[in-house]
Every structure is written in C-alpha cells, then in structure tokens.
C-alpha cells in the first residue's frame, strides 16, 4: 500500500505493508534506527517519536495511521550541526549511560518543551513516566531537562 509520510521535514512516498507499525517503517524503510523497540506494547517508551507535536510510542501506531502527519525523530534534533539544547544538557549532566532509552527519552522531553517551555519538576517526571530507564534512575535525566529549560 502506498504511504505518503512526512518525516523530519522530508516527504516520503513508500510502498508499505499495511501491517507494519510506524516504528518498523522508520527503522527498516527509512533507516532511522534512533527509535528503538524495547517492549512492543507501549510500556517502555524506547520507540518514542513526535507526531504532530505529541510524543507517541511508534510501536503502537500503524504506519498508515501516520499518513499526512508530521513526524519528528531523534535524528532531526540536531540542526545544521548544532545539537538541540536537550541533547547538550543530557551530555553535560551525565544523563546517558547505555543510551538505549535516550532517543525516546529525548523525544518525550522535546515534546514537553514544545508544548510547555517552563515545566515543573513534576511535569518533567510525568512527561517521561512512559519512558523506562534501567541505568540512570532518571535523576540526571530530570536534572538535564531542568538545565535545558534554564538555557532557553
């Protein structure tokens, strides 16, 4: 089935099996492997991307449900060789260990800041409540988001 989809400001015209999830299309058809699969049931958030301004689990969305939507993945956070302030803050605060949750975590935080530039600590934690991380205990991640807010 034909699928026209806008990912990171590029319009793609793809031939996609209707059973494929958005995550599969991003990873396998477009080679955007930043989004990861960790559970396949929308619990871990490793596959989080932004669709029309909202953070969503791309494992829970069929590719065809993304028809005509605007998708942003972690690969687009860096613009013109400049890292997003969230990426910088994750680096500066030691918010990254194994890195497997990091792309999803960043996209949840990015969606938060796009919609709410000055979130409270509680709002940050709620924004990433669907993103599991086994390495960091989330503490440095929350700290990084707070720093990114200050650096706006």
């Amino acid at each position: 089935m034909e699928l026209i989809i806008n990912v990171n400001d590029i319009e793609y015209k793809l031939d996609v099996n209707p059973r494929m999830r958005l995550l599969d299309v991003l990873r396998e058809n477009l080679g955007l492997t930043g989004a990861k699969e960790g559970c396949g049931e929308g619990e871990c958030g490793a596959c989080t991307i932004i669709m029309d301004g909202l953070a969503i689990n791309s494992c829970m969305v069929l590719a065809h449900q993304a028809r005509g939507k605007k998708i942003i993945t972690v690969e687009a956070l860096e613009q013109d060789g400049e890292m997003d302030r969230l990426q910088e803050a994750f680096i500066n605060n030691g918010a990254v260990q194994c890195g497997y949750c990091t792309p999803g975590m960043l996209m949840s935080c990015k969606a938060l800041l796009m919609n709410n530039p000055n979130p409270t600590d509680e709002e940050i934690k709620i924004a990433i409540e669907g993103n599991l991380c086994r390495c960091t205990g989330y503490i440095k991640i929350v700290r990084a988001v707070k720093e990114a807010i200050q650096n706006q």
């Binding site: 492997t33 989004a35 972690v74 860096e78």
Partner: peptide, 11 residues
Amino acid sequence: PIHDVKEKVSG
C-alpha cells in the same frame, strides 16, 4: 561524559 555520548544522543 561516557565516550560515545554524542552518538547516543543523536541516535
């Protein structure tokens, strides 16, 4: 920071 942090935050 961890040695491959840039590659990790950029996906």
